[in-house]
Amino acid sequence: MSRQPLRLAILEAAKLLEEAGVPSPRTDAELLAAHVVGVERTRLGLVPLVDPEVIERYRALIARRAERVPLQYLTGVASMGDIDLQVGPGVFVPRPETELMFAWALAVLEGHPAHPPVILDLCTGTGALALALANARPDAIVHAVELDPAALAWTRRNAEARANEGDTPITLHQGDVTDRSLLTELEGKVDVVVSNPPYIPEGAELDPEVAEFDPHLALFGGPDGLSVITPMVSNIARWLKIGGAMAIEHDDTNGGQVAALLRERRVFGEVAEHPDLAGKPRFVVARRVATDAEAARGH
């Protein structure tokens, strides 16, 4: 059989994905085509014709995407900062919105005098934030915590891959971020804490890609979405040094509640809410400004 036009296959795929209700059909059709052909998406125009077996492989992937299998499961890759991460069944797929929290952390570290800075990533999943920060700040000491053994296996895989690429290794911990006895050796020593914890309220309506594929342990935070965040805040206060900063990603329905949680703790100051790319409330930041004793005395 003769070679076939890739552009026509992409148009056909985009139509199929649109009919299946995929949120970004043309983008996903092009990204999967780029994955199959082995080029950047921006260079697809340089591949006008492909062999029939390439079209077959492409259509098979499109059929799975039409079944709402996450795009990243099909390509095996998600990104954070300047790094690619391996993803698949059993681990939460990093979202573009979390890039904003990554950028915030980098900005905080730029203005921080500590050397080397100590970073703690809670509920790390793939290791996205921890590994992206280690890549951007090779001078940092980075710790990452994950409870789920299946997710931790992906974290280890990604951490090994980044270490093989020459990045500074990170330290992984299996544990519950709400456990008061977790990482006592880091008390008062952490410069920046970042966390993308389970925060979706139970019963929320979710896209099939999320509801059917992301691990529920990584998604749901009790009836109000705060069952992990509330006790985690006490631990973050314990780990942060004075002047240290923290950021917690949250559901777009409870940003005000997370900010209030932090303001209630007098050890925190400079509490601020940050929107995501769509303008919805997405993460809250704060700084440790006082010791427990100072907070008890009202500074």
Rank of each mutant, 00 (worst) to 15 (best):
T168V: 13
G111C: 11
V142C: 06
T178I: 10
A150Y: 12
A128D: 04
N158G: 11
R95N: 06
I141P: 01
E97L: 00
S181Y: 12
L120F: 05
P94E: 05
L120R: 00
V108Q: 11
N135G: 15
G175F: 05
T171Q: 15
T98F: 02
T184L: 14
L100D: 06
W154Q: 05
D139I: 10
R180Q: 14
R137A: 10
L100C: 06
E185H: 13
E99G: 00
V190C: 09
N158M: 12
R137E: 11
N164P: 00
V118F: 10
E160F: 12
L186K: 06
V145N: 02
A150S: 15
P94Y: 06
A144C: 06
V145S: 03
A128L: 10
I170F: 09
P116R: 07
L131K: 01
P149W: 09
R156F: 11
V108H: 04
R95H: 03
L152R: 01
L182E: 10
E160P: 10
R180L: 13
G125Q: 03
L120K: 02
H143S: 04
V145Y: 02
L122I: 04
V145H: 00
L172M: 14
P169F: 07
A159T: 06
A151M: 08
V118H: 07
P169Q: 12
R95G: 03
H115L: 15
L182F: 10
D167Y: 13
A150N: 14
G111H: 12
P138W: 10
I141W: 11
A107I: 09
A151G: 08
P94S: 04
V190N: 07
L147A: 11
L152T: 02
G125N: 03
A163N: 12
D176Q: 07
G175Q: 06
D121R: 01
A153T: 12
N135T: 15
G111A: 14
T155Y: 04
